[in-house]
Design a binder for these strands. Structure first.
Lengths: 332, 332
DNA sequence: GGGTCTTGCCAATACGTATTTGCACCCCAT
DNA sequence: ATGGGGTGCAAATACGTATTGGCAAGACCC
């Protein structure tokens, strides 16, 4: 910028006034033009680090996720990255497999990060002190302590239950992670609540918890299959587990949806590419990421506008090939 | 840091010497201890932005990828993020769906980034001028202009060809992207070279190009099916395309591997979860990302050590359910 | 006991930009 | 002509840390 100023025959502060396009900048049009021309001539690019130091804003967001390889998470990232990037913010990616939430937050704080998006992190796990003074938005999580963007997980569980019930299933099971994430808890609660309303109680051996991955779904399904009293309808808290379960059923010689119906949750792209195609509850992952980023940017730029107005994003049932009438089993 | 210095009764520069652990720092042990104690007392955290300004190093890497949602890319990211993070570097994620490579590089340069990892970006597309003065490592790409870490893509193509040939297939096809990425070009070249060596020429209608996604694989497969003279063995340049093709075959009423054999490439986790399980060539994605990050860190920290020593990472065939003997078709 | 060396610290400066303050200068009204 | 108000710019300062140079005080030599 010194070079620009020298070339335009003005002082550095004047060049700064012009280039930062200050609102109440009183600069003569001719001078302004000279500075802009000089900047264009030498291809001036501002040093964001220096700007960050004086303005005490890094124009960067932290994006903390449990696992980049989870397709749902990848969708969330895509939505958030796009919004942030278009607003001129950089995205610092932090994977929890590398280090814990608290440690990542330390690093981000040291970098004077403007805000943090927390994806798929259970609110109870959050170290409140590590978050002190950090602007944060939770993704697909609800908390009265921090703003968040969430999907209607309760409805997701209900939709899955209603779908299976309407197909005539009475022998039902739930497969989900041991996570304390709000989204997972609510999917489970919505499901079991609807079962209770239909007069069905979920035995504990039909409530299987495991890691929210294909492997976890596989292991949970194995336990369901060997546990006796095989269920005919299964709701899996996410599609990865559902696919693991699906695969395990096929390996065990079961046919879907004849012998067993499976309903997943999230509707990742993959759900349409397994065989049979997975019936699931669609969660708008990209939209969650995008809205969370937008909310965070508002919190950063529009002062203490704490009106998070957390609205639940709607979910919907996508009936495909892994769910079918329970009577099929009886008649076959 | 001023507070730390005041608390320890020393000047700010002295505190800096202690806290930055300078090699030829001549500080009395007692003083050093006082400073460290003071820093611990008030929970001092360095301001990385200010450090970046003086040291002219941001301790941050750019990671430029075509699409976070591609599982192969997600694996690469995981590997790179882990290495960078453990070395104390932040990772700025840039998705090409947001803006072009050149624009991302501008932004990264303005942020005084220390280096850039370019994942799955064709070397020919690279704007050489936008890369001037930026330390960069290409991932799964080869170039005599920039250092890189790549897999043995030629061998991958050969392995696929040898596998299909050894199963007796003679009616072969290739499905790949129109990308000019080295990895894809070599996978194709290795495949076709082996076919030629076996006296088989690939007709143009059996060389289908499309987007490297499931949809692309689906569309390419549809063209193969409707083009007459259906091939019995197909090599798809990545697993996503292979899965799209697989799915399309199943929908068309074909059985795998009885009617058609498919070999994918990359061995993403998903390959084991489609039905039948996908035969594929395993590419060490995470290792690629990790090695690329390590090489970049070397270039950054160890001076102009241009000895990139680009070694090709080995690939291997993983035979699963989508490939079988060609004679099966004849006898069925 | 005066000189050279070493040790341990601080003062000064730099990094590149933003912001505040103050000073010329000109225009116009009285 | 003179004072007041506005305009356009530069000087000074700040952001938080790293680095250089130099200055005291002590150790050591003859």
């Amino acid at each position: 910028m010194h070079d620009v100023a020298a070339r335009a025959g003005v002082s550095q502060p004047t060049a700064s006034l012009v280039l930062s396009n200050h609102p109440h900048a009183r600069v003569a049009p001719a001078t302004r033009a000279r500075v802009l021309q000089a900047a264009a001539d030498i291809g001036y690019q501002p040093n964001v680090v220096a700007q960050s130091l004086t303005r005490r804003r890094s124009f960067a967001l932290g994006l903390l996720v449990p696992d980049v390889r989870n397709p749902f998470v990848a969708d969330v990232i895509t939505g958030a990255e796009r919004v942030a990037s278009e607003a001129g913010y950089a995205v610092l990616l932090c994977d929890q497999s590398t280090r814990g939430v608290a440690q990542h937050l330390e690093v981000l704080r040291a970098r004077q990060i403007d805000g943090v998006l927390l994806g798929a992190v259970g609110a109870r796990d959050l170290p409140a002190d590590a978050l002190a003074g950090v602007k944060v938005v939770l993704i697909d999580e609800l908390s009265d302590q921090w703003p968040s963007i969430a999907s209607d997980a309760l409805a997701a569980g209900r939709l899955a239950a209603d779908h299976l019930l309407s197909l005539g299933h009475r022998e039902l099971a739930y497969v989900g992670p041991a996570s304390d994430m709000h989204a997972f808890r609510m999917r489970e609660r919505g499901f079991t609540a609807r079962l209770r309303a239909a007069g069905i109680a979920l035995e504990s051996r039909r409530l299987q918890r495991d890691w929210p991955t294909m492997e976890g779904g596989r292991d949970a399904m194995r336990r369901l299959l060997t546990g006796g009293a095989r269920p005919t309808g299964i709701f899996c808290a996410n599609d990865l587990m559902a696919i693991g379960a699906l695969k395990t059923c096929l390996r065990a010689g079961l046919a879907l949806p004849r012998d067993v119906s499976i309903v997943g949750c999230e509707d990742i792209e993959l759900a349409r590419y397994v065989t049979p195609e997975l019936t699931t509850i669609a969660i708008p992952a990209r939209e969650l990421g995008a809205r969370a980023a937008r909310l965070l940017l508002q919190l950063i730029e529009d002062a203490p506008q704490r009106v998070s107005a957390t609205r639940l994003l709607p979910v919907r049932l996508v009936a495909r090939g892994t769910s079918g009438s329970a009577s099929q089993e009886m008649t076959s």
